[in-house]
Design a protein around this nucleic acid. Structure first.
Length: 349
DNA sequence: CATGCGTGGCT
DNA sequence: TAGCCAAGCAT
């Protein structure tokens, strides 16, 4: 099976089984394709849909996005994760608005913050109908299996090979459909676990299937033990029901976002009676949450505390503020903290 | 090249 | 269930 056959079989399958009614597949514009590609980075389709709808409703054009305050952009992004994507999106929108036109070359696209080779390739092929390969997780899975390419795809040598193969397989005609098709194949049939090879349009020539190595491709990265990081998050509220928030440092977890104050250094509950000269009159643990990241688990115990005589407290208004749960929605507040606060105030109602 | 970055789903 | 992964990019 040559590349022409591969393309034809894949496209014929796409015409029948491909996804063609996703929000960003309607009213296709470079802006909408760009936005969808950014949201879809390391994020599944089902998660993105609602965010995409809300985002495009609020910011229908690049100009609208460019002229919005960054906090408003982060607010709409809240819960989607990888918040640098939102900041880069906003920054890029301002650059594009300044230029007066949407960049339509690979070089110009890659020059924008948040756009790498794969995202640029997707925009070029889907929005501009230009022959340009992509190499996302789906394509890596399909190509490593179809060609029985072993070795962890993150490895430079393997990565280089995969880009070359992807470029070789990418057609000139119907390049937008092809790009969508190979991603659909990876997302719906050529999945990591339980791939449905029987339904695959190119299964007769798939080298992994012929050599019975589908289950071990792509080669997984050698994993190492993930350390656990423990922190304590304080949920401080005053008599008016306002919650104390602090703006987190720009580096590290939830960088630049608003969250409840963190006290990871406290050793025992007895230490919590006086914090920032605020008298704590009551405290109890709400729940314990855990999040998994690439290289560590984050264990945090949110602690509910009431404070009295708030008017006499000295607060740093530059880095801290008292705000209501409603306010948190426009602050790009880290999603788990937002949920915690909303749950807390729901119980109070 | 390794690491950091979020959240949710799957096995 | 605890680990792994999902439409990557920046540093």
């Amino acid at each position: 099976m040559n590349t022409i056959d591969f393309q034809q079989k894949l496209l014929a399958w796409f015409d029948v089984c491909g996804r063609k009614d996703l929000p960003w597949q309607r009213n296709i514009t470079p802006y909408r394709i760009w936005l969808s590609e950014i949201m879809l980075q390391q994020t599944q389709v089902i998660t993105v849909i609602a965010y995409f709808e809300a985002f495009t409703k609020k910011f229908p054009t690049v100009d609208a996005l460019a002229h919005a305050p960054v906090d408003e952009v982060l607010g709409l992004w809240s819960g989607l994760g990888y918040y640098a994507r939102a900041r880069n999106l906003h920054k890029s929108a301002q650059i594009i608005a300044e230029q007066g036109y949407f960049p339509n070359t690979l070089e110009a696209l890659v020059a924008l913050p948040g756009i790498g080779l794969s995202t640029a390739g997707a925009i070029m092929s889907i929005a501009f109908q230009k022959r340009q390969p992509i190499l996302d997780g789906n394509v890596k899975r399909v190509l490593t299996r179809f060609n029985a390419i072993s070795g962890w795809p993150g490895q430079a040598e393997v990565n280089k090979t995969l880009w070359a193969v992807s470029a070789d397989f990418t057609p000139i005609d119907r390049v937008a459909d092809y790009t969508q098709a190979i991603m659909d194949l990876g997302a719906t049939l050529c999945t990591r676990s339980k791939p449905q090879c029987v339904r695959c349009p190119v299964n007769t020539a798939c080298l992994a299937r012929l050599t019975d190595t589908v289950a071990v491709l792509p080669t997984p990265k050698v994993s190492k033990k993930i350390p656990v990081k423990h922190v304590t998050l304080l949920l401080l509220h005053n008599a008016a029901g306002h919650v104390l928030l602090e703006k987190r440092p720009s580096l590290g977890i939830w960088g630049g976002l608003w969250s409840v104050p963190e006290f990871s250094c406290l050793q025992s509950a007895h230490d919590w009676c006086v914090i920032n000269n605020i008298n704590i009159v009551k405290q109890h643990t709400l729940t314990t949450k855990r999040h998994t990241f690439s290289h560590y688990h984050l264990d945090y115990t949110p602690v509910l505390m009431c404070v009295d005589d708030v008017d006499n407290c000295v607060m740093d208004t530059e880095q801290n503020l008292w705000c209501t749960v409603e306010h948190t929605r426009s602050l790009g507040l880290a999603a788990p903290i937002k949920r915690l606060l909303q749950q807390h105030f729901k119980q109070r109602e």
